[in-house]
C-alpha cells in the first residue's frame, strides 16, 4: 500500500472514531479539570475548563480523606486473590468441559449462564445472611476481606469457565497425545504441554476478572465494615453518597487515580484482550 493511501485511511479511521472518542475522553477531561481546581473554583460561575490556580494539595487532602493508600492495597489484594481463586477453580472445570467426557455438559453450561444473570444487587440480602452464617475465626465472613474474595471469585467463575473452555477447545490435541506416547502421564501432559499453551487465555480471563473485582461496589458495601478494610471503589462512592457537602475535586481525583491502574493494564494488554475474548466468545 502506498504511503499516501495509508495517510488517507488513517485520517478516515480517526475521523470515523472521533465522535465516540470525544465522548470517551470527555469524562476524563472533566475529572482532570475538576481534580486540579481548588473548591471555590470548582463551584465558580461560570464553570471553566482550566483552573486559575492548580490545587496540588487536593492530592494530599483526598489521600487523607479517603485513606486512599490502604484502600488501594485492599483493592489490589482483594482483586488479585479473587482472580487467583476464580482461575484456580475455572481452569480444571474448563479443561473438563473442553477435553473430557462430561455427563450433563449442557446442563452445566446452562447453570453457568444462569449464574451470570443474577446481579449482586438482587442477592445482597441473601449473600449477607450467608456470610453471617459462616463462622471464621472469632466471627463470621462478615467484615472480612476473605468473604469478599470468596463472593467475587464465585461470581466470576461462570465467565471464566465459559471463556477458558472455548479457548481450550482450540488447542490441538495432538501435542498432548504425542506426549502420552512419549510416556508422559495425562496429568504430566496437561502440566507440561497444555497449560503453557493456555497462558494467554488464562491471562485475559484474569484481567476481566480483576477488573470486575476492582470495580465492584454492592457486595463490598454490604460486607465490609472496618474502615481499614474498605476498597477504593467504596471509598470513592463514600465521598459522594449522603454527604452534607461534597468535595467534587477530591472525588474526581480519587476516581481518576482509581481508574489509572486498570487503564494502564488495558493499554499494555489490549492486543491480547481482543484475541482472548474472541476465542472465548466462539462457543
Amino acid at each position: 500500500m502506498t504511503a499516501s493511501r495509508m495517510v488517507l485511511r488513517s485520517a478516515l479511521c480517526w475521523l470515523g472514531l472521533s465522535p465516540l472518542l470525544l465522548l470517551v475522553i470527555f469524562p476524563f477531561a472533566v475529572m482532570i479539570s475538576t481534580a486540579l481546581k481548588p473548591i471555590d473554583e470548582v463551584l465558580a460561575w461560570p464553570p471553566r475548563w482550566l483552573p486559575d490556580h492548580i490545587a496540588w494539595h487536593n492530592f494530599a487532602d483526598m489521600w487523607l480523606a479517603a485513606d486512599f493508600g490502604s484502600a488501594l492495597l485492599n483493592s489490589l489484594g482483594i482483586s488479585i486473590l479473587a482472580t487467583l481463586l476464580a482461575i484456580a477453580i475455572a481452569v480444571p472445570a474448563a479443561y473438563a468441559m473442553a477435553r473430557l467426557e462430561l455427563p450433563a455438559k449442557d446442563l452445566y453450561r446452562q447453570f453457568l449462564l444462569v449464574t451470570q444473570m443474577l446481579s449482586p444487587v438482587l442477592l445482597v440480602l441473601g449473600l449477607f445472611r450467608m456470610a453471617a452464617s459462616v463462622p471464621l475465626g472469632d466471627g463470621t465472613l462478615v467484615d472480612t476481606r476473605f468473604g469478599v474474595i470468596l463472593i467475587y471469585g464465585a461470581f466470576n467463575i461462570a465467565f471464566a469457565v465459559w471463556m477458558l473452555a472455548s479457548y481450550f477447545a482450540t488447542i490441538p490435541r495432538d501435542l498432548e497425545e504425542a506426549a502420552w506416547l512419549d510416556g508422559c502421564t495425562r496429568t504430566g501432559a496437561v502440566l507440561r504441554i497444555f497449560l503453557p499453551l493456555a497462558v494467554p487465555a488464562i491471562s485475559v480471563t484474569a484481567i476481566v476478572t480483576f477488573v470486575a473485582a476492582w470495580n465492584e461496589f454492592t457486595v463490598a458495601l454490604t460486607l465490609l465494615r472496618d474502615p481499614s478494610k474498605l476498597t477504593v471503589t467504596l471509598r470513592v462512592v463514600n465521598l459522594v453518597a449522603g454527604r452534607y457537602s461534597v468535595q467534587w475535586n477530591q472525588v474526581m481525583l480519587a476516581t481518576l487515580l482509581a481508574t489509572l491502574p486498570v487503564a494502564v493494564m488495558f493499554a499494555t494488554l489490549q492486543r491480547y484482550l481482543v484475541r482472548g475474548l474472541t476465542l472465548g466468545a466462539v462457543k
Binding site: 456470610a131 453471617a132 463470621t140 462478615v142 454490604t222 465494615r225 463514600n238 449522603g242 454527604r243
Partner: peptide, 21 residues
C-alpha cells in the same frame, strides 16, 4: 466505631440485623 454514610446507614443496619451481626 464505624462511621457510615447516611445513604447506606439504614441498608447496612438492615442487613446487619437480619444477619445477626
Amino acid at each position: 466505631v464505624d462511621v457510615v454514610n447516611w445513604d447506606s446507614l439504614l441498608q447496612k443496619l438492615q442487613t446487619d440485623i437480619s444477619g445477626g451481626t
